[in-house]
Each structure stands twice: as C-alpha cells, then as structure tokens.
Design a protein around this nucleic acid. Structure first.
Lengths: 209, 209
DNA sequence: TAGATTGTTAATCGATTAACAATC
DNA sequence: TAGATTGTTAATCGATTAACAATC
C-alpha cells in the first residue's frame, strides 16, 4: 500500500517491534540505534533498517531512532488507531478467556458483541456485555456492522457460521477454530491461532534440538 | 536430525499436513496425490513433495500417498507418540481455558500439573487435577521432572518464574505471556503464542488488503 | 503396457545480510 | 569537524517452483 507490496515476513515482525518499543518507553529510553535493537531483539541491524525503510525514513543518521516516534509510526502502519469492530463467536472457556484476557482496545479493535449457542450462557455478563444468542446474529450485524469475527467454536460448527458471517458482511476472522477458512474464501482476511499446530511444533523442536 | 537440518518453514507446515490428513481419514479417503493435496491445502505440489522428502520416501510413483501411512509418518516426525510431560503456570482465565480446551494427549504432551499464585484458586479441580500453589513448584519438579511449562502469566512475573523453572530442569516453554524468553536463554526451546502480535497482524491486513 | 505420480535436480524467486556512501 | 548511524544498493543465502527421468 504505502510503497510496494510489503512481504509477509516484514509484517510479522512489526508487532514485535511495536511491543519492544513500548517496553523501551516504559524504561524511559528515548533513542535507540538499529545496532542496539539488533542486540536486544535478535534480528540483524541490517534487517531492522530494511524493515523500517519499507515504510519511510524514521531515523536520523548519526543518531538512530527516536523511540516514541518510531513506536507511533509502527502503530500507524499497523492501523492501531482506527479500530475495527469485532465480535466473539463462542463464549466457552476459550472465548471467555479471549474476551477477558485480550486488550482489544490497545490492539486496534473494539469488541462490541459476544455470541453463544448454549442456552445456559446467554444473558451472562462478560466484559460489561451480555452474551447474546447466536440466533440474533443476523439482526445484530445488520444494525452494528461488525468487521471482524473471533471464532472460538469447534471445527464442526465453523464452516456454517463462517459462511453466514461472510454473507452478513464480516471482512476478517481471528480464527481459533481448527477450520481452515482461508482456503474456501478468497477475499476474506484470516489470521489463524492454531493452538494445536503450535503445540505440535513445540513437540518437534523438543525431539530435534 | 533425520538427514539434514530441516528448515523452519517446513516444520511449520508439518502440523497442517498432519491435521489435514487426519480429516481425510475421517472422510475415509485412503490415498491422495501431491496434486490433489495441493488443490485442497493451497501449497504447490512441488513443495509438498519436497517437504515429505526431507524425511524419507513415503509415496509411490503412479499411486500417490497412502493417507494413513503418511499421517503416521508425520506424527512420528512430530514426535507425537513419545509424549512430553507438561505443567501449566498460571490458571487464570487463559490457563484454565488452555487446560480444558487443548487435548494435550493427542498433540504429544502429557499434562501433569497446574500451578497458581492466587490463594483463592488453589485446591480447585481442573481437568481432574488440583490447582497447586506455585510455592510447591520446586518440590513438584524434583519429584516429577516435567519437561515443558505452559506460561499463562502476566509479563511482569514471567522472567522470574522462567529462570526458576529453567533451574528446575524445564527444557521448553509454550509461552502465552508477552515476555520474550528466547532472547535471554539460548538452549531453551520456546514456542510463542502471542495473541497480541496476531491481532495486530490482523489489523494490518484489514487496513492493507 | 500406458498413465500417473513420485523423487530429485535445476532454475527462479524472494528474503536476509553485507557493505558503504550520505548525512546528521 | 569527527564519529556514529542511517538509508540503500549489491551480494549472498535459502526457499519455492518448475521440470523431468525413474518407476509403480
């Protein structure tokens, strides 16, 4: 968008920079060089400079980078200050933990609804919001136009709900289910959180140090 | 290990193959070609064959791959059948959801303990196990030698606990905290589940379709 | 056998690293 | 000014894709 197509590898590093710069700020560090960042973050200085220069010139020769400025710039690149509205589908253990544990606000999102199938949970208050019946999702979407759905439901329900949500105008998914959305829907944006994949990877690494 | 050093990109794809093959089995599909896998999974056929051939020759010319055999082989590569013992540190919303939601057994792990600081939670039963006081961790580790710790605690506690656990013989971390373990400890294996990073990435993608 | 599909080598593409002139 | 460090180009490295002979 900004200039050329930004590679996926770069994009994946942006949140780490952002997080790290935030830490530096809390330690009252005002400036940092790519060399110092390299030492502390484990990327090469070259790579760090390349990454930043995809988006503009944020540094100053002989000085380095102003931490606050750099953090703000990366925040802007990530789009954190124009938040997207999100709803959670499935408020079991996982959905509830996500709702309560994640600070959507500071990560570029605005959590506006919780939906659940199980009767017993409907009406409960989580994060100052009532858990709504999944049966009311059509109406809710038509009124509130959420952009993103956080999928915290088992795989067997995921496909159907996905299709329904896409018809209702959902543009992106934060996918905790084991259903692979991306393959069936080209234009929809999906970010997967596959716990199982991560755990299997850990298993592999433990066996092959 | 097997032959050469396997690249990280390959390793990351292994769980997806494993998961997908498992689905095929549940659909009673007995054989599949790399071409067909390609269509369904979105990798190229070439890449799929390259990936498998890092570990051996699992296919048969003119036939393709036997789904069950292939799944078993990948399971073996991932090390799923010699499970590693794991403990969860922090049984708040997130730790509890992980304990209840993840089937450690089928992913190469054996969950043997839950630890928590907050008095009120200690003694509660989750997944047929009592939540133990974090103060008893030394004793527990000396007796049971867990290999892996699942870190479900806030960043501010993570560093201290990490160092303690490493001294107690923990070899790997499944890290849900925002503390970056890898940098400070060279020989320890870390698999990160950074929710925030993932969500920021989603934000970026939504803004830059 | 003929057709299909693998295993594997070679070609291409992209990402990372190195180097250095520009400049604060 | 001298030293430091960026921005950027060129070199290297690695991963993906294409091609095809081997073979079931």
């Amino acid at each position: 968008m900004s200039k050329e197509k930004i590679s996926n590898s770069v994009i994946r590093r942006l949140p780490r920079y952002y997080r790290f710069l935030d830490e530096l700020i809390s330690k009252d560090i005002l400036r940092i060089s790519s060399g110092e960042l390299s030492k502390r973050m484990g990327f090469t200085a070259s790579q760090i400079r390349q990454d930043f220069n995809c988006f503009g010139e944020f540094g100053q020769q002989g000085y380095g980078y102003n931490v606050q400025v750099l953090k703000n710039e990366i925040g802007k690149i990530l789009g954190l200050e124009n938040p997207h509205s999100a709803i959670i589908i499935g408020v079991g253990n996982l959905g509830r933990a996500v709702a309560q544990h994640i600070s959507f606000d500071s990560l570029g999102f605005n959590l506006i609804g919780l939906f659940e199938k199980k009767e017993a949970l409907i009406g409960q208050i989580v994060k100052n919001m009532p858990i709504r019946s999944i049966d009311t999702i059509d109406e809710f979407c038509r009124e509130n136009h959420p952009e993103v759905a956080v999928l915290c439901i088992p795989k067997e329900y995921a496909e159907k709900i996905c299709n329904q949500l896409i018809k209702l105008g959902i543009k992106g998914f934060w996918n905790f289910s084991h259903y692979d959305i991306a393959i069936s829907h080209e234009n929809i944006i999906v970010e997967n959180m596959h716990f199982g994949d991560s755990l299997m990877t850990l298993s592999y690494k433990l066996n092959n140090k």
